[in-house]
């Protein structure tokens, strides 16, 4: 199963406007505290870090821990400064890395 994301960024905004950004990524967020049917430990497999860059500058970042639910959802705000690309990057265990991007038009 490939990684899927749901991303919501307003297509247009006025300069200086506070805009809300919502992102959701598919990931099991296996805590490492669970055991399988034979009693063996299920190894931890989580996303460790999320970063959002707006025109190259990091505007929001989050460290994830084992208590974060599966398919983590984040909503945050930033100030619309200039037209450009907003990129989202999730990095985690077992080489997990996923990037998405969205365009915003600022008038």
């Amino acid at each position: 199963m490939r990684t899927r994301t749901l991303v919501k960024v307003p297509a247009t905004a006025r300069r200086g406007e506070v805009v809300e950004i919502k992102v959701l990524v598919s990931h099991p967020m296996e805590t490492g505290f669970r055991r399988d049917r034979t009693g063996g430990a299920i190894p931890v497999d989580i996303i460790r870090r999320f970063e959002c860059r707006y025109d190259g500058d990091t505007v929001f970042a989050a460290d994830f821990h084992p208590a974060v639910a599966a398919n983590p959802f984040l909503a945050f705000t930033t100030v619309a400064t200039t037209s450009g690309t907003i990129t989202f990057e999730w990095v985690g265990d077992n080489g997990f890395a996923h990037r998405e991007s969205a365009e915003i038009q600022v008038e």
Binding site: R4, L6, K8, K22, L24, S26, N71, F73, A75
Partner: peptide
């Protein structure tokens, strides 16, 4: 639909 994980 962006917050609903069922949409995945």
């Amino acid at each position: 639909d962006v917050a609903n994980p069922g949409m995945l």
